[in-house]
C-alpha cells in the first residue's frame, strides 16, 4: 500500500513538471510582457533594462529552471498589474475558492447520493420521475443562468440573501473563513448552490446507474436468497460497491469545481481565484495566470491522491492481496 502511494506521488511529480512547463511557456510565448508593462513613452533603453532585470534575455532553459526553483521555494514572482507578490495575492484568494468548492461538493453529495439511491431503488415511482426530470432541467441550464435566477429570486425579489461579494468572514491566522458566522453563510450559500447543481445531477445519476447495476449482481441476489433484510441489503451490501466507481468521478469533478468556478465567481463577484484569474486575463498579467495554472494542477493531483487512498480504504481487493 505504501508502495502504491509512493508510486502515485512519483507520477505526480511528472504531472506537476509538465504543467509548470506549460505555465511557463505562457510567460515566454504569449506576448511580450515588457510592452504590456510600459507605456509608449518609455525609451527603448529603459525597456531593454527592464527586460534584463526580469531575466527575459536569458536562455529558455535557464528561465524555466529559475521559474521551477522559485516556485519550489515558494517565490511566485510579482504581478505585472498590481506589483504585489503573486503568492500573497493567491493566498488571499484561495480560502474563498476552496470554501466555495467544498460547500458545493457537500451540497452535491448530501443531496445527490440519497437521491441516487432512492431513484435506483424505486425505479418507477412518481417521485423518481419528478426528481429525474427536474435534475435534467437543472443540468441543461447554463451555470450563469442558474446564478442569475437565484440572485433575482432570493436576492432581489425576496431580499433574503446578499447578491454579491463575500462578507461576514473571520480571519483565522491568514485563512479567512465564511463558515463561522451566519452572515458568512448568507453570502456563501447562493454561489455554492449554483456551483453544486451540476455536480449534484451528475452524482445522482451516477449513483443511480451504479446502484441499479449492483442490485442486479449475483451477490445481491444471493444475499436476498439468504433473507438479509432490505435495509442492510441496500445500505450495507449495495451502497459500498456502488461508491467505488462513483468516487473517481466525484474526485475528478471536485478538481473541476475548483478550477472552473470562474463563471460562478464572476456572476456573484466572489473574491476567489477564478475572479483573480479573470482580472489577470484582462490585464495580461502573465505571472498570475501561470501560477494559477500551477496551483490548479496541484489541486487536481492532490484530489486524485485522496481518491486513490479512499479506494484503498473501501476496496479490500486493493488492500490485501495475499491469500491467508
Amino acid at each position: 500500500m505504501a508502495y502504491f502511494i509512493l508510486k502515485r506521488l512519483f507520477q505526480s511529480i511528472f504531472v506537476m513538471l509538465a504543467v509548470a512547463f506549460l505555465a511557463f511557456s505562457l510567460f515566454r510565448f504569449v506576448g511580450d510582457p515588457v510592452s504590456q508593462m510600459t507605456g509608449v513613452e518609455t525609451s527603448v533603453q529603459d525597456q531593454e533594462q527592464l527586460r534584463e532585470e526580469l531575466g527575459l534575455n536569458d536562455p529558455f532553459v535557464v528561465q524555466f529552471y529559475r521559474f521551477t526553483t522559485d516556485i519550489l521555494k515558494g517565490d511566485f514572482g510579482y504581478s505585472y498589474r498590481t506589483r504585489q507578490p503573486v503568492n500573497e495575492m493567491i493566498a488571499s484568494r484561495i480560502p474563498a475558492t476552496i470554501e466555495l468548492g467544498i460547500t458545493a461538493l457537500m451540497i452535491s453529495l448530501i443531496v445527490g447520493i440519497p437521491a441516487g439511491v432512492y431513484t435506483a431503488l424505486r425505479t418507477r415511482g412518481f417521485a423518481t420521475q419528478t426528481i429525474l426530470l427536474t435534475t435534467l432541467v437543472g443540468v441543461s441550464i447554463p451555470t450563469f443562468v442558474i446564478g442569475i435566477v437565484l440572485i433575482f429570486l432570493f436576492g432581489v425579489t425576496l431580499g433574503w440573501m446578499p447578491t454579491f461579494g463575500r462578507g461576514g468572514t473571520v480571519d483565522l491566522g491568514g485563512w479567512t473563513t465564511s463558515f463561522l458566522t451566519l452572515e458568512g453563510w448568507s453570502y456563501l450559500i447562493l454561489p455554492a448552490i449554483t456551483l453544486g447543481v451540476y455536480q449534484l445531477t451528475l452524482t445522482m445519476r451516477l449513483v443511480r446507474a451504479e446502484m441499479m447495476e449492483v442490485m442486479r449482481s449475483d451477490y445481491i441476489r444471493f444475499a436476498t436468497a439468504r433473507g438479509i433484510p432490505q435495509r442492510k441489503l441496500h445500505y450495507r451490501h449495495a451502497l459500498g460497491n456502488t461508491m467505488i466507481p462513483v468516487i473517481t468521478i466525484i474526485g475528478l469533478q471536485f478538481g473541476g469545481v475548483i478550477a472552473f468556478s470562474i463563471v460562478t465567481e464572476s456572476v456573484f463577484q466572489w473574491p476567489g481565484m477564478g475572479l483573480l484569474f479573470l482580472e489577470s486575463v484582462r490585464f495580461v498579467d502573465i505571472p498570475v495566470m501561470g501560477v494559477y495554472l500551477v496551483v490548479i494542477a496541484f489541486f487536481f493531483v492532490l484530489v486524485n491522491l485522496v481518491v486513490d487512498i479512499l479506494y484503498l480504504m473501501i476496496d479490500p481487493r486493493l488492500r490485501v492481496k495475499e491469500a491467508i
Binding site: D218, Y219, A223, N241, I314, D315, P316
Partner: peptide, 8 residues
C-alpha cells in the same frame, strides 16, 4: 461473483 467483495 456470488459473495460481496467488500465484506469479510
Amino acid at each position: 461473483t456470488s459473495l460481496n467483495p467488500l465484506m469479510t
